[in-house]
Amino acid sequence: MSNFEIFWSKFSQGGGYVDYLIGLQNTAIIAVLGLVIGFIIGSLVALVKFIPSNKWPVKILKGIGDVYVTVLRGTPMIVQLLLVHFALFPMMGLGWVNSVAQAVIVFGLNSGAYMAEIIRSGVNAVDPGQMEAGRCVGLSYSESMIKIVLPQAFKNIVPTIGNEFITLLKETSVVSFIAVIDLTKSMDSIANSTYEYFVPYIFLAITYLILVLGISYGIKLLERRLKKNERHQ
């Protein structure tokens, strides 16, 4: 049998495709939910930073945000994942929680730290005159933020968020360390059981590439739609 035939027989009759589909699903779930949770956490952390007050409860919140961002960005995702899965969750009596859900939580927290920075710099990139003009027509700070500054910041950061999504997607390959079947794991199994490595890993690389190209294309479309807003008369 040729290399490809070995792979194909394991993939089809051998049931490898079932793992592949499960892997695809898990990879997608972890990357997408991680991104969504990350966006929510990141927005909250970034917005706390922009509260124009120096009262102590606000200061404490800002401090917590800083520590969170520093720690999560300063350690590898794989370490965070191992720590949560093998130490923190079992210690809190949460060892029974589904591993995919654990991965989603870790990816969400990790991505939240990066998103906080992305959103913060996106807001900072909006001309301060926009906020001032909002205040000058009688809008409050938060109204100006919501109606004027954030929509402009969002438009600016769409490409960066796209990159974050692509990074997350590729990083999902670390979840096999906590026994989640993802795309990488599914091909890994075929390779290890057939001792034929070339075709499964090439197949894996192509799968990732197609996903990444698809996301890039989606981001481009979204960007173009947001830009068109400005041009039409």
Partner: peptide
Amino acid sequence: FQHFNLFENK
């Protein structure tokens, strides 16, 4: 303002 500061997203 000197630089107009019209709301760019409106």
